[in-house]
């Protein structure tokens, strides 16, 4: 215990968790919705981080797995009343299969770097158009989950108040963090990092590069699909146009890159910074009275972070405040 607590990062983490657990007591609706946005973004960033940050495979099409998870859970719920937990398994399975197909094709045919990223976009867009024409899930006019009485929380069916959704996503983010941490400290994490740094060298050392990259894709895809399921039940509506869009893929990775790719805290820090920035700019934009200014300022801030801290904010903060130690 003392060994754990002597680590300043552990203190930071436990403090953060404690604050987040009691947060709904003091937070109003607005703050709660922002916290949900942050945690969702952090969770999705962690999922993307497994593939890109740990194993070095650049995916620009993660909206595909978000969409598959959302539609699997949502459509089963709408048509058969299937509990989200079962829908989640279906979504993870479908996403894992999709990831396996894309990964197997891409890695076998040696599609690398930018080309691999474009391949992932192409699959996501392909599936988006497919869902746009698939009547069973509502096609382009969307799929709507019945909104029931929000006075009672039904965690089994994921129908209830914002507070319930808050604890669900908090749990997901905490588990996602713990899972990422354990992956990184296991043998597989070291193998992934070896592949990320130099694939040929890793191959020469006898690491089964293809298999390990496939595992990274499958884990990342399944994790992402759970985030999609959450979006489906939280928003109660699904449109292929938005759930599979390239903008979602970009948004999903933005926080992690800003926060620090390949790190454990990066996705969380990035989600906080970007969401806060977005909210502040919205308020400032409203005050000035020009709508579009928000996105422009967002772009400028993004550019500034890239120029000043291209490695991400977390590695820099970690160094500044002496939070180094152990594996990330």
């Amino acid at each position: 215990m003392s060994a754990l607590l002597s680590d300043r990062r552990a203190v930071l983490l436990l403090g953060l968790l404690a604050v987040l657990v009691v947060a709904p007591l003091g937070a109003g609706d607005y703050l709660l919705s922002i916290l949900i946005t942050i945690l969702l973004q952090a969770y999705l960033g962690m999922a993307w981080n497994v593939m890109m940050g740990f194993a070095g495979q650049f995916s620009l099409g993660h909206a595909l797995y978000v969409g598959l998870g959302a539609y699997a859970g949502g459509a089963l719920f709408v048509h058969f009343g299937t509990p989200p937990l079962i829908g989640a398994m279906a979504g993870m399975l479908v996403s894992a299969v999709a990831g396996t197909i894309i990964g197997a094709l891409g890695f076998r045919f040696k599609v690398m770097g930018v080309y691999f990223a474009l391949l992932t976009i192409a699959f996501a867009e392909f599936v988006r158009v497919l869902f746009d024409h698939w009547g069973w899930v509502g096609a382009s006019s969307g799929l709507f989950l019945p909104v029931s009485n929000r006075a009672t929380d039904d965690i089994w069916m994921l129908r209830g108040s914002a507070t319930m959704f808050y604890y669900v996503i908090l749990g997901m983010a905490a588990l996602g963090f713990a899972f990422s941490r354990s992956l990184l400290r296991r043998r597989i994490g070291y193998y992934w990092q070896a592949i990320r740094e130099d694939q040929e060298a890793a191959d020469a050392l006898g690491i089964d590069v293809f298999r390990l990259k496939m595992i990274a894709v499958v884990i990342s895809a399944s994790m992402t699909s759970l985030g999609g399921l959450f979006i489906a039940f939280y928003n109660n509506n699904l449109y292929p146009e938005s759930i599979f869009s390239m903008h979602r893929s970009i948004e999903l990775m933005l926080g992690t890159i800003i926060g620090g790719i390949g790190t454990l805290f990066g996705p969380i820090l990035g989600a906080v910074v970007l969401t806060a920035l977005g909210e502040i700019l919205t308020i400032a934009g409203n005050a000035i009275g020009i709508d579009g200014i928000k996105q422009i300022a967002y772009g400028v801030c993004l550019m500034a972070i890239l120029i000043l801290k291209p490695g991400g904010l977390w590695p820099w903060l970690r160094q500044r405040f002496g939070l180094e130690g152990g594996a990330r």
Partner: peptide
Amino acid sequence: EHIQFLLLLSIAMIITN
């Protein structure tokens, strides 16, 4: 490449908006 990608993306964001 992902940093380059984000840089051009931020340029794109500024232009479109």
